[in-house]
């Protein structure tokens, strides 16, 4: 089997959430934020992916699936990750219809104490595999979703 070590370019987007607080009390009010996990595979079909994300200053409270049908179910994660700031996500698709291009493959829900300011997710241990199970280089990032509240 030909296996390629994955060299994934990781980018963490600086996240700015919500409007500036209106008063001191609001500064420390809990807030919910939504982060999109986005993989850009270029022209290569995506069969599997994994990623470790740390979001300092936030608590992970939920994980949901992505947009393409192949990755619509929530990815696998360790339940202990919820209520922490670090999570490892992994998902695979065994069907023949595999998506390619820029894909939102999962969504993370986090809470902040309202004083966290810009969140900077740190990504590591990323792997993406193509339709033959070979690792390939893809661009992954975690970015603020348009659905942040």
């Amino acid at each position: 089997m030909i296996a390629f070590r994955l060299l994934v370019t990781l980018a963490a987007a600086l996240l700015a959430f919500g409007n500036p607080p209106q008063d001191p009390a609001a500064t420390h009010a809990p807030g919910f934020q939504v982060l999109d996990v986005v993989v850009d595979t270029g022209a290569i079909p995506l069969a599997a992916w994994q990623l470790e994300v740390t979001v300092e200053g936030a608590l992970l409270v939920g994980v949901e699936g992505g947009e393409p049908a192949a990755f619509r179910d929530a990815p696998r994660y360790d339940p202990k990750a919820l209520q922490g700031d670090r999570i490892v996500l992994a998902a695979l698709a065994v069907g023949d219809e595999l998506p390619r291009g820029k894909l939102r493959v999962a969504r993370l829900h986090v809470t902040t104490n309202g004083s966290s300011g810009n969140l900077t997710p740190v990504l590591r241990s990323a792997v993406t595999a193509d339709a033959e199970g070979r690792r390939f280089e893809a661009h992954l990032e975690v970015q603020a979703s348009g659905e942040g509240r």
Partner: peptide, 15 residues
């Protein structure tokens, strides 16, 4: 082990 291993096993393509 990584997700590519899991995929190959799930697809029955592991060596």
């Amino acid at each position: 082990l990584d997700v590519a291993d899991a995929w190959r096993v799930a697809r029955g393509l592991a060596d």
